[in-house]
Design a protein around this nucleic acid. Structure first.
Lengths: 343, 343
DNA sequence: TTGAAAGCGCTAACAG
DNA sequence: CTGTTAGCGCTTTCAA
């Protein structure tokens, strides 16, 4: 069996209290005893049980991370950043895939609570606000990332989605596009709605009627986006550009464009969102609104760790600026028309 | 504060032993008391502390997963599968990114041990065999996935890398390619060496001299692959095909090809490995040797969970068959020559 | 059926 | 400086 603090105490001929003190480097212990105890701990491969010390009021040094799907690059990259930062602070992180399923979200929350994790990062929308507020009575540190939830008062890190939507749209509008497809998932979270607001704001500012825009909803995968974009392109050939709310959907749109015989970017401009690695690997490389994923992960984790440590009193919301990364999937609409004529 | 078993017992006017029994559905308790206790637990949002019960001999219901980098799609998809399967069995999973760094590998192992996780899945090469064997004295259930380690006796799930390498190469050879670049990372694990063996075996079988092959090593990223492939292509224009050991590297090679003015697949055929989602999203879609990632994750996790539960006595090694998925990045070399002549 | 009591491995007063 | 002791929240005999 694994050695316990008693085994160490016995072999070192001291009390368990003394051993505990050298483990935690607390109180005063003679240098000699300390060395002796240390030597024996080493010899026996002794490690204090986190389980036992957690029971006596200490932490579990574990945090939970809820995301819709870790296989989605955005969340994978975010998780990497969270884990790195947590690791640096002595924390392990347990991942939870919610699939945006309200029941799984709540279930995971309670599971983590039962395991006495020290804190939880929510990278998934919590649909059931009531249940969440109930949960918060447990008083376990929470932090939000890439999600906004005005109803609850917790540390939050996100990107200015409104500006992101605005920037992407303006870029397209300036290139002469007016009939733009807005390709989105469920449109059930603040990110989506904020981006749409920015989208419309740009329309207004350019004096283009919002009627010109075409909303393409309910896209949950590359294939969904491809399919619905294909339909949109067929029923409305005037569409010359698309703004997709994540890089995956954008890739689907590029594929749809190609399948519909539209060259990208000459005949169809595409802008994505997130700037995960697939944006650079796409062909052509994708113009997209970049979220500083790694920084977001680092920030939330740091905020959560600080809160666990009892620092920062008031809750904070950090809003980062998204940045439009112009690559090769967007072109001037005039150029597009000229090309079409020539071919 | 969170309610404890004592609070429940008090309110229900029974002993904590009774409460414990209804929690675990053990022993015999009167239906009435049972209902009363249950009602109170519910009312108080009571959840037994995993920490406390783990201290009294029960499990933590947590497993660890070590991977080089969760941001790498192969491991992200694997992690998703592991988490799903674990979740179904009542386990949470904590992720650990090792970056293939021997020190991090060992450190994580001991961290997890200290937290008393019930088992660990190794999806990363453990370079330090000695340290690993030392660790195994802790007697904590271990399982390997996508890695082979003949030195240690643990449950293992992997793909037949030899066959995978052979299949990919044969596909290229049959298309008339002989000068093939073998693009690999560090070549420091069994997967890589086995695939190389399969690669050479195909050469031998086709009566092509192994001298024809060109090894391109030390590629750790898309950019690495792109760069070294570009160099290879310039210094050796006779190369007409490449076999890259993962999809990322393959994408880099496609990019290199395009940059070198080679059309893919007409002037350069590319075969990857893994079949992560980026293979379908690449342009053209990537021909690649598919690993059944989800199944692999499901299997190891199930094996580990079974072992934790005290089932399966002897350790097992499950070898899955890789499958060549032919898509659009490979073409006949003759056709390539003809095309070149025409243009 | 129910309960009393002894631990699980560790921490934290409080005494010496 | 070092040791004694009382818990932390739960499980598990063993009696009643």
């Amino acid at each position: 069996m694994r050695p316990t603090i008693y085994d160490i105490a016995e072999r070192a001929e001291v009390s368990i209290a003394t051993v505990s003190k050298v483990i935690n480097n607390k109180g005063k212990i003679g240098e000699k005893t300390k060395q002796r105890v240390l030597a024996i701990m080493d010899e026996l491969d002794y490690q204090p049980s986190t389980v036992a010390s957690a029971l006596t009021g200490k932490q579990t040094n574990t945090i939970g991370l809820l995301v819709p799907d870790i296989a989605n690059s955005f969340f994978a990259e975010l998780a990497r950043s969270v884990e790195d930062t947590g690791h640096a602070g002595g924390f392990n992180v347990v991942i939870c895939n919610t699939d945006n399923n309200p029941e799984k979200e709540i279930q995971y929350l309670w599971w983590l609570n039962q395991k006495r994790v020290d804190g939880i990062i929510l990278g998934t929308g919590i649909q059931n606000t009531k249940a969440l507020q109930d949960f918060m009575k447990q008083n376990i540190p929470l932090a939000l990332v890439a999600r906004d939830a005005a109803e609850i008062d917790v540390d939050t890190v996100l990107v200015d989605d409104y500006r992101g939507g605005y920037a992407a749209t303006k870029h397209l509008l300036k290139a002469g596009h007016t009939r733009i497809a807005f390709v989105v998932g469920e449109m059930n979270n603040s990110s989506d709605t904020e981006r749409l607001k920015g989208f419309y704001e740009a329309y207004d500012e350019h004096g283009v009627s919002r009627e010109e825009a075409v909303l393409v909803q309910d896209n949950h995968s590359i294939d969904d986006a491809k399919k619905s974009m294909l339909e949109a392109l067929q029923s409305d050939p005037d569409i010359t550009a698309v703004f997709a709310l994540n890089d995956f959907l954008a890739i689907g749109c590029i594929q749809a464009g190609k399948e519909a015989g539209r060259r990208v970017p000459e005949d169809l401009s595409v802008v994505g969102f997130d700037d995960t690695f697939i944006a650079t690997l796409s062909d052509p490389p994708l113009t997209t609104v970049a979220q500083p994923i790694l920084e977001m992960g680092r920030l939330v984790t740091q905020m959560l760790v600080d809160r666990i440590g009892g620092k920062n009193e008031t809750t904070r919301t950090v809003i980062l600026n998204p940045e439009l990364h112009v690559r090769k999937t967007t072109a001037n609409v005039k150029k597009a028309e000229r090309d079409v004529t020539n071919s």
